[in-house]
Design a binder for these strands. Structure first.
Length: 497
RNA sequence: GGUACCAUGGCCGAGUGGCUAGGCAGAGGUCUGCAAAACCUUACACAGCGGUUCGACUCCGCUUGGUACCUCCA
């Protein structure tokens, strides 16, 4: 059996995964900043790591999955006025900071539920761990790797770089960082441009503030992840994940902080997902090209031709390898929607098919082919979580399932073992690992009752060969979004979209 | 400017030194009263130029184009 291996950003190659304390695995993923609503780009890491989490569980690991919520402020623009994003927006919206944080946290959780993402084991908040962050900063200061200037504390990157490889994760050279950073006007408290804040003093108008040994302020961006990951997963844990754009400076700084304060590289494996682009450009606030998740689901955005369901989006993301960029377009989303429908209806059919009675299938080649496609799924997942290839194999199996239903493949061609494997594979991969689920359409009971009546009437007129009327019924229903299908076996099915 | 990465058929996208990725759209066919669905068949490809090799889309170099990070960023 193949071993699980995946790409480690730290070593820049695929590595066989070895848990520090099997069967336990510690997984930390950088969560959302709840100062605004999540957009499509944010969905990618959470779906990617949801699948990784699910797959690790599938492999039998006991996973503690920690995903933080950043609800404390950061400085907007380094070297300039330090601003707390959250309190800034709160003033605009006339909300208490924590009210705002709650609002966007709720929205985030709603979106995660829509995507069928499993909740993390622990979801710590930055504001709930101010004490831990302060004590970590104190430790770093005691060890001489941080300095205070007028109520703010900075990490001394130059000093750190004398003994440790700053840039090890992002492939950056310390000299470049020290020299080529551009000049920003305004007073700079930092000794070197590459230094980053551990604690920032708050200006008087700031609402979000906490007392500290250095006066009132708020924690720097990077320290929360170091404090919370070590608290819940230990000084060193297995996997740290997040978007590629967090490699530098966020994760690089986390490594530096933890290395000093805890004496260890925080995580052994660093996993980064790539970006979602739109018209070839990264989706991001600065580019003004974001599509919020609520807009995506409702179709309410100028770039959207229609609404896309959460499962369509999830499927769309999983059809690409997580380390490749993924370009958004209506065409691509619609292709994903159709593909998912085809796959899902095959799955529905598979669940209904009767078990073959024979222990040995008559069509040996077919049995072997099916078993190979099924078993390969495991190899694909074990090779850097290749969900795209898993889906390709499920698509290969789709015509077989459909042919079993239509009778083009006879039930006795398959062995009961092959059939059982087929069912098990679809269930495990589609539902348990890829985390896809059925999406309820508008078919409530009343509609079903009405449709039953209509289709009954239509059946009568068809039996009298009154095709003009039967076609009129079908066409009218189609125009309101209900598709009627006359199946080969004489039954008529319908679906609403 | 520095550092990485990418370039695949109409679109989205896997992947590999010699063997069909897959999805969506297209074409032909089977089935059907018709349609839809389904099934079968099928066209379309690896940015350009060199090099390594028996053989490269896959390795190396250059060119061109693009993106990301260096500042908040998933």
């Amino acid at each position: 059996m193949a071993e699980l291996q995946f790409y480690n950003t730290l070593s820049r190659k695929k590595e066989i995964f070895e848990a520090l304390n099997p069967p336990h695995v510690g997984l930390y993923v950088c969560g959302p900043t709840v100062s605004g609503e999540s957009h499509l780009g944010h969905a990618r890491p959470f779906i990617t790591f949801d699948v990784i989490y699910r797959y690790l569980i599938h492999l039998g690991y006991k996973v503690r999955y920690v995903r933080n919520i950043t609800d404390a402020g950061h400085f907007e623009e380094e070297g300039r006025k330090a601003e707390d994003k959250i309190s800034q927006k709160a003033l605009l919206e006339r909300l208490e900071p924590m009210e705002l944080v709650q609002k966007y946290s709720n929205l985030f959780h709603w979106a995660m539920q829509q995507f069928n993402c499993l909740p993390p084991s622990i979801e710590p908040t930055a504001t709930g761990h101010i004490i831990e962050q302060i004590s970590m900063i104190k430790k770093i200061m005691e060890l001489g790797y941080a300095y205070e200037v007028d109520g703010s504390v900075y990490f001394d990157v130059r000093k750190y770089a004398e003994k440790y490889p700053y840039g090890i994760l992002s492939g950056r050279k310390i000299d470049d960082l020290l020299e080529t950073t551009r000049n920003l006007e305004g007073q700079d408290e930092k000794r070197n441009k590459a230094d980053f804040a551990l604690w920032k003093k708050t200006p008087p108008e700031h609402i979000m503030r906490w007392p500290s040994p250095w006066g009132e302020g708020f924690p720097g961006w990077h320290i929360e992840c170091s404090a919370m990951s070590s608290k819940y997963l230990g000084k060193q844990f297995d996997i740290h994940g997040g978007g590629m754009d967090l490699q530098f400076p966020h994760h690089e700084s986390e490594i530096a902080q933890s290395t000093i304060a805890l004496g260890k590289m925080p995580a052994r494996y660093w996993v980064h997902n790539n970006m979602i682009t739109i018209n070839g450009r990264k989706m991001g606030k600065s580019y003004n090209n974001v599509i919020k998740l609520s807009e995506l689901f409702s179709g309410n955005h100028p770039l959207l031709e229609k609404a896309y369901s959460p499962m369509t989006v999830r499927f769309f993301i999983l059809q690409t390898h997580y380390r490749s960029t993924l370009d958004f377009s209506n065409e691509a989303l619609q292709a994903a929607e159709k593909g998912l429908n085809r796959l899902w209806s095959a799955y529905e059919i598979l669940k209904m098919l009767p078990e073959p009675l024979h222990t040995t299938g008559e069509n040996k080649g077919l049995n072997e082919q099916i078993e190979r496609w099924c078993r390969e799924c495991d190899d694909f997942m074990k090779d850097d979580f290749n969900t795209a290839k898993v889906l390709a194999n499920l698509f290969e199996l789709t015509p077989i399932i459909n042919s079993l239903k239509s009778g083009q493949i006879k039930p006795n061609e398959l062995s009961s073992n092959t059939f059982a494997l087929l069912k098990k594979t679809w269930k495990e991969y589609l539902e348990d690992i890829l985390g896809l689920k059925e999406e309820k359409s508008l078919q409530d009971d009343k509609l079903a009752g009405v449709m039953g009546l209509i289709l009954n009437i239509r059946k009568d007129v068809r039996s009298k060969k009154d095709y003009a009327t039967s076609d009129k019924i079908r066409q009218t229903l189609e125009s309101v979004g209900i598709t009627v299908k006359d199946e080969k076996d004489g039954n008529t099915s319908w679906s609403a979209n």
